[in-house]
Design a protein around this nucleic acid. Structure first.
Length: 482
RNA sequence: CGAGGUGUAGCGAAGGUGGUAUCGCGCAUCGUUCGGGACGAUGAGAUCGCAGGUUCGAGUCCUGUCACUUCGACCA
């Protein structure tokens, strides 16, 4: 019986080491996060997965409001002519647009693009509501779906339709807009660390990797367990490029006409993929407590015996009073089944309560990260649970830090770079001359290693570009991405 | 878009040479269990991805098509 224990527990989930991609898909399905739909690349986000998204939304939305932003809703259809107003923008998005050509029974006079992002619609609106410097800044955000016709899709990481938030702001001065761009990247960074338990690298995208139409793109790049990067969120400074293309002007304090300066920033349901791949293990998902739909699950043992369910309910009420998200599973599944079930779903802490515990005045607490049983006094359960939730968060951060550090290699020379790209999955820190041809070449010879960003805290690794040997301008973090 | 793989019950699979579909899990009911995915009994559940074709007869052979998936290319 005991000999089969470990084997049985991993039976339904492919081991990460055997096949990481399959492991990921297994976790998505077994943790009941999402299901495939009848439309390619479109997924059904199931209640448990959506609850994670709701928690993410709640946390982020509070941060957006606190920094002065207002939520709005823009239409999902964009007239084709509108999208075409900014040249770089349309070139960037045209290949992946879904287009509506028929309304009801009639062919439309103008085709409608299903929004891949909403800069253009916001701009059209900004043109109407911005007249004076008194109308600035405009600090808008929306929580919506967008569609990008991706060729290769994967649940959460890359789907044809996905949910996200897109912040769009307009400012009187360049300084103010640049400040906003970095402020929101900072919000993302803080959220990743404190809510998702993911310490991530932040920095600036190279010219080649910038958003279509942006002057600067800043990014947050979390690393997954297997060393692959994920573009975890972006914040763009647009300058007045869109404002000029859309003829958005305002009268300044000196009664002269100016173009406002613009930003946009977004994170998506892709973050759920990041949580899975940054924290999960062979037993399934591990959720950071801050966004876990269930922070603690109570498993009653021998629940038919007198007093067990009563005690379990009492504990549930006490913990809920502390603001903890609790589920009591009193279904008639076996306890062993329940243990496995909630481990697959990544519930941070489990509480077991049975006749023996009630007699001794204890209960059993098990964290999803250590999976060791701890006997704690029922009297002090609130404090012990709080402590364990904090432990899970801290442990996840620590593990992710170690993973990031272990899977980051410095390369001073071309040979070192190739060796790292070939043999050491993860990030490579290396110097760069600033020429996009070197980016192309490195990507080519390594089969996919691209520049992630120029981090804010650059290190000096060498004097010359790792690729061409010309004087280096920046240190770049390189890596493969999802 | 290129190369491969897979579509049979909710899930996973078996179904040489054509003869009317089988198993495991899950599900339902009842009983016994309950501290790491319990056990027994009974039962429900499938127009074999879809559309054509060959044939007396197609899950099986042929043609087309769709979806999913892996790896690449592409992608902010």
């Amino acid at each position: 019986m005991a000999a089969n224990k470990d084997k049985k527990m991993v039976e339904q989930i492919t081991s990460m080491d055997v096949d990481f991609a399959q492991w990921y898909t297994d976790v998505v399905k077994k943790a009941e996060l999402a299901d495939y739909s009848g439309v390619k690349g479109c997924m059904i986000i199931r209640p448990y997965g959506y609850a994670i998204w709701e928690n993410i939304q709640r946390e982020l939305d509070a941060r957006f409001k606190k920094t002065g932003h207002e939520n709005v809703y823009m239409p999902m259809f964009i007239p084709e002519s509108l999208l075409q107003k900014e040249k770089d923008h349309v070139e960037g998005f045209a290949p992946e647009c879904a287009i509506v050509t028929i309304g009801g029974q009639n062919k439309l006079a103008e085709r409608l693009i299903v929004r891949p992002t909403s800069e253009t619609v916001f701009c059209e609106h900004f043109k109407n509501v911005i007249q004076s410097y008194r109308d600035l800044p405009k600090l808008y955000n929306q929580w919506v779906n967008v569609v990008r016709w991706e060729k290769t899709t994967r649940p959460f990481l890359r789907t044809s339709e996905f949910l996200w938030q897109e912040g769009h702001t307009m400012h009187e001065t360049e300084e103010e807009a640049r400040e906003e761009t970095l402020r929101m990247l900072g919000v993302y960074e803080e959220f990743y660390l404190n809510c998702l338990a993911i310490p991530a690298i932040t920095g600036r995208k190279t010219e080649k990797e910038k958003f279509a139409g942006a002057e600067e793109t800043y990014t947050i790049e979390p690393m997954m367990h297997n060393g692959v990067a994920l573009q975890g969120g972006t914040s763009h400074y647009f300058g007045d490029g869109f404002a000029k293309a859309f003829d958005i002007t305002f009268t300044g304090r000196d009664n002269k006409v100016y173009y406002p300066h613009q930003t946009s920033w977004g994170v998506s349901t892709r973050m759920i993929g990041a949580i899975i791949m940054a924290h999960g293990d062979d037993n399934g998902l591990i959720l950071p407590p801050a966004i876990a739909p269930i922070q603690l699950v109570i498993i009653p043992v021998a629940q038919h015996k007198e007093g067990v369910l009563e005690k379990a309910n009492e504990l549930k009420a006490r913990l809920e009073a502390q603001g903890i998200r609790v589920k009591l599973d009193d279904s008639d599944q076996s306890t062993g089944w329940k243990y496995s079930q909630y481990e697959m779903k990544g519930v941070p802490v489990r509480l077991e309560i049975g006749p023996r515990d009630i007699e001794s005045g204890n209960c059993v607490l098990v964290s999803r990260v250590s999976r060791e049983k701890n006997f704690v006094a029922i009297d002090s359960v609130e404090a012990e649970v709080e402590k364990m939730l904090k432990f899970v968060h801290d442990e996840l951060v620590e593990r992710a830090r170690v993973n990031l550090a272990q899977k980051t290699t410095k390369a001073a020379t071309y040979e070192e770079f190739l060796d790292a790209a070939e043999n050491k999955p993860g990030f490579i820190k290396a110097m760069w001359c600033g020429d996009s041809e070197c980016e192309d070449k490195l990507k080519d010879v390594t089969g996919g290693v691209k520049s992630r960003c120029i981090p804010f805290n650059e290190e000096h690794i060498a004097d010359t570009c790792v690729c061409c040997g010309k004087p280096a301008k920046h240190m770049v973090v390189w890596g493969r991405q999802y």
